[in-house]
Amino acid sequence: MERIPILKMGRALLITIQVDMHDQMAIALEEDLTTRIAQTGAKGVLIDISSLEIVDSFIGRMLDNIAAVSRVLDAETVVVGMRPAVAITLVELGLTLQGVKTALNVERGFELISRRLAEIETVVVEIGAEDERSGD
C-alpha cells in the first residue's frame, strides 16, 4: 500500500501530502506518525497540504486526530499551505481545527516550530543554570 513519507528535520517531522488521500492512507499516516514521534522525540510536526485539493469530513477529522495525538506526545502540529477552497470546505463542514496551528507556507510553519523549539531550549538552559547555582 502507498504510504506517505515522514521526513525528520532536526527536532521536527515534515510530512508533505502530494497525492489525494483516501481513508486507508490517512489511517496509516496517523499510525506511522505516532510511531515516529515516539521514536525520535520530535517536538514539532509540520503537515504540508498545499497539493491537497479534495478534503472530506474524514480527512478533516484525521488532521484533528493527528494534532491531538501529537499533543499528547508533546509535539506541536502545524498545518501549512491550505488552499482557499479547502479552507472554505472545512469551515462549511464545521471543522475549524481548533487544536491545530496553521501557517501560510512551509517557511512560516517552520518559523512557528523553531520558536517553540527555542522556548524549550531556553527552559532547559535556565534550569541547567539554576542547577549549577544551587550546586555551588
Binding site: V79, V80, P84, L104
Partner: peptide, 10 residues
C-alpha cells in the same frame, strides 16, 4: 466562518 477559514490558511 470567514475568520475560521482565514485562520485555517494561517
Amino acid at each position: 466562518k470567514t475568520v475560521a477559514a482565514a485562520r485555517l490558511m494561517g
